[in-house]
């Protein structure tokens, strides 16, 4: 091998050389392979198992499904049921509505917080970020139980809400308490509470990187601070909004614990339906079908977005090469 180290060689070229060496030895491929192996083993293979189950037929055996024999090899009837049985359609709609509402409200609440942290002084920033992450140090389940206490009819929180409500509405509409527990609103409320940090953190990461000189430039060109926000800050934070939105929307869609503990039994979300089919109805193929459909519901918009993004980038590059 060549000389051990050349003192004149700078950091960048040393790193490049190291990179080339890694590449030659096949280490580069090895390192990149790790996430792929992970995804194949823990996502693709389980997904294929679930998909296979979804086209199997329910049998009174253990496990309670089977292929072939007197049953059709590929049984698509569960997918038919998905579109004909209103139980599933309603559950998907409830999930979507709840997730959209929670995501939108998380954005409305989280954006000012993220912006506030990003614009705070350096020493304050880490303290404020700590406060955002702090709830994670308590068990998720415990926090949901705490909300059950807060939303109950005799809690100080409910009494406060009741007082506000009664103060605002005509006498005929006055309430003894605000019905919160076991409603869909409770699901949305607790979902917002639980997922708010997932909205704030990516937004903060995005907003913190923005060049404040651009704000100054806009102000210099005659824009008042509010206008600067609309013209400069908001458009530049779209990637952060999308990242935060995805991080809230996707888990909120499949949320199981929150609706189970505080939601209404008459408006199940998709997670509860999967659980019921699997555990109580012992209809594994139907449970699998609902799960596969949920995945498509979540992944397809994501893929469309990525594709559109890619196309816009390609277009820009093509135009660049033209000029």
């Amino acid at each position: 091998m060549a000389a051990i180290t050349d003192p004149l060689e700078d950091e960048a070229s040393r790193r490049r050389r190291l990179g080339r060496w890694f590449h030659r030895q096949g280490y580069m491929q090895g390192i990149i392979a790790i996430p792929y192996i992970w995804l194949v083993a823990w996502f693709l293979v389980p997904f294929l198992i679930i998909f296979a189950m979804s086209v199997a037929t329910r049998t009174p055996t253990a496990p309670p499904f089977g292929f072939g024999g007197e049953n059709p090899l590929l049984n698509w009837s569960h997918y038919e049921r998905l579109f004909t049985d209103s139980l599933y359609i309603r559950a998907y709609l409830t999930s979507l509505v709840n997730a959209v509402a929670a995501t939108a409200l998380c954005l409305v609440i989280g954006y000012p917080i993220a912006l506030g942290i990003a614009r705070a002084s350096r020493s304050w920033r880490s303290i404020l970020l700590m406060l955002v992450i702090l709830p994670f140090w308590t068990s998720f389940l415990l926090r949901v139980y705490a909300w059950i206490g807060l939303m109950g009819t005799n809690s100080w929180f409910n009494e406060m809400l009741t007082a506000v409500w009664n103060g605002l509405v005509p006498q005929a509409w006055e309430l003894a308490y605000v019905p919160l527990m076991n409603t869909n609103a409770a699901v949305i409320l607790v979902t917002i509470y639980s997922y708010l940090p997932f909205m704030i953190l990516p937004l903060y990461a995005n907003l913190e990187r923005l060049d404040l000189t651009l704000d100054e430039a806009a102000m210099d060109l005659g824009s008042r601070p509010m206008r600067v926000f609309w013209d400069i800050t908001l458009p530049q934070s779209v990637p952060g909004i999308i990242a935060g939105g995805m991080l809230v929307f996707i888990p909120a869609c499949g949320e199981f614990i929150i609706p189970n503990l505080v939601g209404s039994a008459s408006r199940p979300m998709i997670g509860a339906v999967i659980n019921d089919e699997f555990a109580y109805a012992r209809d594994w193929p139907m449970a699998s079908t609902v799960a596969v459909a949920l995945l498509f519901l979540l992944v397809v918009p994501l893929m469309v977005y990525t594709w559109a993004e890619q196309r816009a980038e390609d277009k820009a590059r093509a135009r660049e090469q033209e000029g």
Partner: peptide, 17 residues
């Protein structure tokens, strides 16, 4: 700044990306 009859060319140019 938004009411001054002054405009500035920034060192980083600060063009809106």
């Amino acid at each position: 700044p938004y009411e001054r009859p002054v405009n500035m060319m920034f060192q980083s140019y600060a063009l809106f990306p």
